[in-house]
């Protein structure tokens, strides 16, 4: 059995999770503070991948980044970057597709923290950055872990978006979920089963570790 699809999937999930963590922390903090029509629209756009068929999202990404026209053409001509049928494209699609899984739990957790925690920190002369790093972030650890694991696990299981923008190129865009589909199409059920079992095992371990970790944290006064 070719293990490359598994490594590619893990690499994609790892990079996507790290990128989304960096993007989602400031965005979630911004969204958690007050309401405005601009924030509502931003949140709605970010949430769309939860309800949109993955193939629809993949189709629009394919159009947007196609090197034949628009943004894709500009990116290719200006920076020599091609997202379609490349690993970069998979990362871009995964970041967009999995964003609600990272952003949602972090934003909810930040919203549930009493506003007086930040105020107390400000009254001690601490900046917003110091307050975020020393007070807010450490107090949303369980939600942060949930967000990280959900995002990683969700990216492991991506199929529609990845297939649309990346296709099925061995060692480049052929991730495990596509390898399962490909094996079934070729009636190679034992390979499909091997890939599926590995994905199942990894996902189960990830999800159960979150449950175990958060169970021990239930004594926290914030939960």
């Amino acid at each position: 059995m070719d293990l490359n699809p598994i490594w590619l999937t893990l690499k994609l999930a790892g990079i996507t999770t790290v990128l989304l963590l960096a993007i989602s922390l400031p965005v979630a903090w911004w969204l958690s503070k007050g309401r405005s029509i601009f924030k509502v629209i931003t949140e709605a756009i970010i949430t769309m991948p939860l309800v949109l068929p993955p193939s629809v999202l993949g189709f629009y990404l394919l159009l947007a980044f196609s090197p034949q026209h628009g943004m894709g053409k500009w990116l290719q001509q200006t920076f020599d970057v091609q997202f379609v049928f490349s690993f970069k494209g998979l990362v871009l699609a995964s970041v967009i597709y999995s964003m609600p899984f990272m952003l949602g739990p972090i934003k909810s957790a930040l919203q549930q923290l009493p506003v007086s925690l930040s105020q107390a920190s400000y009254s001690l002369g601490k900046t917003k950055w110091q307050t975020f790093m020393h007070v807010l972030l450490p107090n949303i650890k369980p939600s942060l872990l949930t967000a990280i694991v959900l995002t990683f696990a969700h990216t492991l299981g991506e199929f529609g978006v990845v297939l649309m923008i990346g296709g099925n190129i061995p060692n480049v865009t052929r991730v495990a979920s596509i390898a399962v589909y490909d094996s079934v199409e070729q009636m190679d059920y034992s390979t499909a089963n091997a890939y599926s079992l590995i994905l199942f095992g990894i996902t189960f371990i990830l999800v159960i570790s979150v449950f175990v970790f958060n169970k021990y944290r239930l004594k926290s006064p914030l939960e």
């Binding site: 009493p114 107390a120 009254s123 002369g125 900046t127 020393h134 450490p138 107090n139 926290s220």
Partner: peptide
């Protein structure tokens, strides 16, 4: 002026203690 520049000490009715910090860490943070 932002609260950080006013630096008025504040004792909150709900205490607003930081759940992640020990008693000593609360004071060392300040």
């Amino acid at each position: 002026l932002p609260p950080q520049k006013r630096m008025a000490g504040f004792v909150f009715q709900d205490y607003a203690l930081f759940p992640n910090m020990t008693v000593l860490q609360h004071l060392q943070y300040a």
